[in-house]
Design a binder for these strands. Structure first.
Length: 493
DNA sequence: GCTCAGAAAAGCGCGATATC
DNA sequence: GATATCGCGCTTTTCTGAGC
């Protein structure tokens, strides 16, 4: 048998790429909302060039953000303090009534999976081929796309490529060739993962494994060192060895910029500000997850407004750019009816049950999983007739069949979810640790001392110069012009 | 030692899998 | 179980050299 590592001209590794898509029937679309002309006119006026940071900041509904943060904390208390359960209904009312924004009508989404193809959509040319393929599969003629738009939901890469297609074909002759009919809209599941990665990256603090706080420290404390560090968290140690001179220069530059950022973001206790920031972004993340599951896409977008800043701060520039596109669409270019149409169809609900809404890209990922699980023959392409038609077109039904099939033979039906591991001991361990830290900090405060990075420094002494290595993060995630003080930072405005 | 422009390198996004 | 690698297009950051 020839092994994979025995590479010859006739035997080598190959990365196979393919594309699968799903059509979801639109619901609750105001008449004329998808008419393309008003949208094209608004874009032609180039109103987005007036966009300012202040506008984005003012667009955030801070009272809502504060209210929803408090409500999320109440939910956590209810989960872990049984005696509070009589208040459950009152807490839920906060989400369903008081802070309700744009709740989708409960329904069972009508979905139709399409043929899989072996087109690689990661290139602009490939993405254009995918679009042509989709239209051909749906028997949509160019003439019928003269006046109408077609909502295309996808992950960041897909949406980015579609935007490139629109830009590259802007000088073509017909609206169809110009892709004026394509309305790319980013989906939320991949974005949630990217944000989670950003949160970890900003609060990991690789140097503080044995210190007092930071996710790296927490992971060590609960003995989960094998946790994947989401790649590239740690600085590459080779650089420290190979180019000490260059590093020294870099350190000098970074030291200046970091200390400036640190003093701007706090009036003394950077550790407190960082911890508050971590708790805030975590609450926002939980709120995004909850609002999606509950089908309140309005609440989701209140969090996404915050992410317009967070992704830029975290270095996820592709997502930052995409959210700015979405902000421009929302603020200047979408009509009210189009906004309603987009929001009303942002999520899907396969079961029609309360709390079972999910992102469209997650839905597609589930189908992708089953396509590959059911037909894992490595010598076939994704557009082989069997895979494309027998499997691809019927994948939703096949995956449902798998759920019901054992029951037909009297076999026990598998549950729909995994049992969560009990984390009570981990929580107690962390709680005990932070209680000690809090006690020691209180003692330090009583003696008029300021704590910095786990070391006590007398208040009348000059502020210590922090090292260039990122013991503390240089900048909290969501700020405007870097002028928030601690009080504002905690309350969110 | 500074600015500027252009070149080069790094980063980002996606998912499967070989390999340690 | 963790992670480097595969490929590609694009953006952003960093490096380099010229000129003052």
């Amino acid at each position: 048998m020839q092994r994979a590592w025995q590479h010859t001209l006739g035997h080598k590794d190959e990365l196979k790429s393919g594309t699968a898509a799903t059509v979801i029937e639109l619901e609750d679309v105001p008449p004329g909302a998808l008419f393309s002309e008003p949208f094209a006119q608004n874009i032609a006026q180039k109103a987005r060039s007036k966009l300012t940071v202040k506008q984005l900041y003012d667009d955030i509904d801070w009272p809502h953000v504060r209210g929803i943060g408090a409500a999320t904390i109440l939910r956590i208390w209810l989960k872990y303090v049984p005696s509070l359960s009589p208040h459950r209904a009152a807490v839920e009312v906060l989400f369903t009534v008081k802070h309700n924004k744009h709740r989708l009508r409960l329904r069972k989404s009508k979905i139709h999976t399409l043929r899989a193809t072996n087109i690689d959509e990661s290139t602009t040319v490939g993405a254009a081929s995918v679009l042509r393929n989709l239209l051909a599969q749906l028997f949509i003629t160019p003439v019928s796309l003269v006046n109408w738009m077609f909502m295309l939901y996808g992950d960041q890469l897909t949406i980015d490529r579609i935007r490139k297609i629109i830009r590259y074909t802007a000088k073509c002759d017909t609206p169809h060739e110009q892709h004026k009919w394509a309305l790319p809209i980013i989906q939320l599941w991949h974005m949630k993962w990217a944000w989670q990665k950003a949160i970890f990256r900003l609060h990991w603090h690789s140097d503080l494994a044995k210190g007092t706080f930071g996710l790296h420290h927490d992971i060590v404390l609960i003995e989960r060192e094998k946790f994947e560090r989401l790649r590239s968290f740690d600085s590459t140690s080779f650089r420290f060895i190979a180019a000490p001179a260059r590093l020294a220069k870099k350190k000098a530059v970074k030291n200046n910029s970091c200390s400036a950022a640190r003093t701007e973001f706090s009036n003394g206790d950077q550790a407190l500000v960082t911890l508050c920031n971590f708790m805030r972004v975590t609450l926002w993340y939980m709120e995004l997850c909850a609002s999606i599951a509950e089908g309140d896409i309005g609440r989701s977008f209140e969090v996404i407004k915050l992410l317009r800043f967070s992704f830029w701060g975290a270095g996820s520039t592709n997502y930052g750019n995409e959210l700015l596109e979405l902000a421009c669409n929302s603020l200047y270019e979408f009509s009210e009816d189009l906004k309603t149409a987009v929001l009303n169809n942002y999520l899907a609900n396969l079961s029609g049950r309360i709390g079972h809404w999910l992102e469209l890209d997650l839905l597609q990922e589930h189908f992708n999983f089953w396509i590959k699980r059911l037909f894992n023959a490595k010598s076939h392409d994704f557009d082989g007739q069997h895979l494309a038609e027998a499997v691809g077109l019927n994948i939703a039904g096949i995956s449902k069949l798998r759920e019901t099939f054992p029951g037909l033979f009297g076999l026990k039906r598998n549950g729909q979810r995994h049992t969560d591991a009990s984390t009570i001991h981990d929580i107690n361990q962390l709680g005990n640790h932070f209680r000690k830290i809090m006690y020691s900090n209180t003692k330090a405060a009583e003696t008029n001392h300021m704590t910095t990075g786990g070391q006590s420094v007398a208040a009348d002494e000059p502020e210590p110069v922090l090292s260039a290595d990122p013991g503390f993060p240089a900048a909290p995630v969501t700020v405007s012009k870097g002028i928030l003080d601690v009080g504002e930072f905690i309350t969110g405005g």
